[in-house]
């Protein structure tokens, strides 16, 4: 029982990321409204960012900015600082997310101008005609 408890608690960062990811993916596939698809896309990307950032965490570690001053120089204890690499990678992913969101919204505005709606089934009707 305790094992199971530790197992669930010890990895709840992954559970959170996976649940968010599935919600986002469901929105992207199943929603009829294109704007909701875009919202799903944002949730999906946020889930992956959460996943990466949680990789970088170390128990008891602080942010990866060294304590420094002129003249004072001591050996750096790597265990005392969080892993910087996932943060760097996610800065990129955030930027990519913002860019994709901007482009998707621009296309959405154009779709509204051409078809007069952003509901997928109504758009398909106007294309068939």
């Amino acid at each position: 029982m305790e094992d199971l408890f530790n197992y669930i608690i010890g990895r709840y960062n992954y559970w959170a990321a996976i649940i968010l990811l599935l919600i986002g993916l469901y929105g992207m596939i199943a929603k009829n409204n294109l704007l909701k698809k875009v919202i799903g896309m944002t949730i999906f990307q946020a889930a992956i960012i959460l996943f990466y950032v949680s990789i970088g965490d170390k128990r008891g570690a602080t942010i990866p900015i060294l304590d420094h001053g002129h003249g004072t120089h001591q050996a750096i204890e790597a265990a005392a600082y969080a892993n910087p690499l996932p943060h760097v990678l996610m800065l990129t992913a955030i930027v990519v997310g913002v860019s994709t969101l901007g482009v998707a919204l621009a296309i959405l505005q154009k779709i509204y101008r051409v078809h007069g709606t952003i509901e997928e089934d109504e758009i398909l009707e106007t294309i068939d005609q």
Binding site: G56, R59, G60, A61, A78, A79, P84, L85
Partner: peptide, 20 residues
């Protein structure tokens, strides 16, 4: 996967330690 905040997870020892 390694549990959350595990300081010994592979992600936190190889490149990370070099950078730190």
């Amino acid at each position: 996967l390694p549990s959350w905040g595990d300081p010994q997870s592979p992600a936190s020892v190889h490149l990370s330690n070099y950078y730190l």
